[in-house]
Simulated assay, not measured.
Amino acid sequence: ACDVFSIRAQTASPPAAATAAPAQTANAPGAPQHFGRSAGNGPAAATGLWDYFWRGLTENYFNFAGRARRKEYWGFCLFWTIALVVVVGAGLFIDDTMGDPDGSELPVVTVGLCGIFLLATALPWIGLNVRRLHDIGLTGWLFLVVFLPTIGWLIILVFALIPTQARENQWGPVPTGVGI
């Protein structure tokens, strides 16, 4: 597609400084290879908390590679919790509206909706935790500590609070937006 800005860019004369130095391309031999969000030449992805949550449920649904900074992790957790509260509220409202005809007092709709929500968001959440561990320089397999009774969740919480490594590591470059 051709727009006004690209036509202007093609017809405008380049500044003198731009013509003096040859342009370097990202694919030049010896240039560092970039992965993840830093790799694309397109527009940068939005870094709002909602954007991280939505991207976690769509683009990163089954993504266990790369890095996830603290803002991405906590943004996902915030909106996941809000969504869970909405799902529980809707389920309780529906259960209350339907009444309890058989006297079982089990909120069937609430339990069903919560189960579906948890199953639908389990893979993105695990992937996010693995990428978060990569971001602090640890292997994603450490996520398995979550299965340790009582202390597993606390260990994952500590990992989630550790700042991003301010250098490139084996899982990719520093995520966009992290000050070095």
Rank of each mutant, 00 (worst) to 15 (best):
G66V: 08
T19W: 02
A26P: 02
L118I: 14
L84N: 09
V86K: 00
N63I: 02
V88H: 02
A26D: 11
F62P: 01
M98Y: 10
W50H: 04
P43K: 12
A16L: 12
G36I: 04
K71P: 01
W54H: 01
A31S: 15
P107Y: 08
A120Q: 00
R69K: 14
G40K: 06
A16K: 10
R8I: 12
R70H: 08
A90R: 01
A46G: 14
P43W: 12
Q33H: 09
I82G: 04
G103I: 08
L92D: 11
T110E: 05
G91N: 10
L78H: 06
R37K: 09
P107H: 11
F35M: 12
V108I: 15
G66M: 05
V87L: 11
V85N: 03
D96E: 13
Y73Q: 04
D100G: 06
Q10L: 11
G115C: 09
A28N: 01
A46C: 10
N41R: 11
V88K: 04
G103P: 00
A20G: 01
N41E: 13
A9H: 09
L49T: 08
G48E: 09
D95M: 04
D100Y: 06
V109N: 04
N41D: 12
G99R: 04
L78E: 06
R8E: 12
K71V: 08
A9T: 08
A90T: 14
D102P: 00
G112S: 15
N60Q: 11
E105Q: 15
G115W: 07
A44D: 10
R8V: 12
G36S: 05
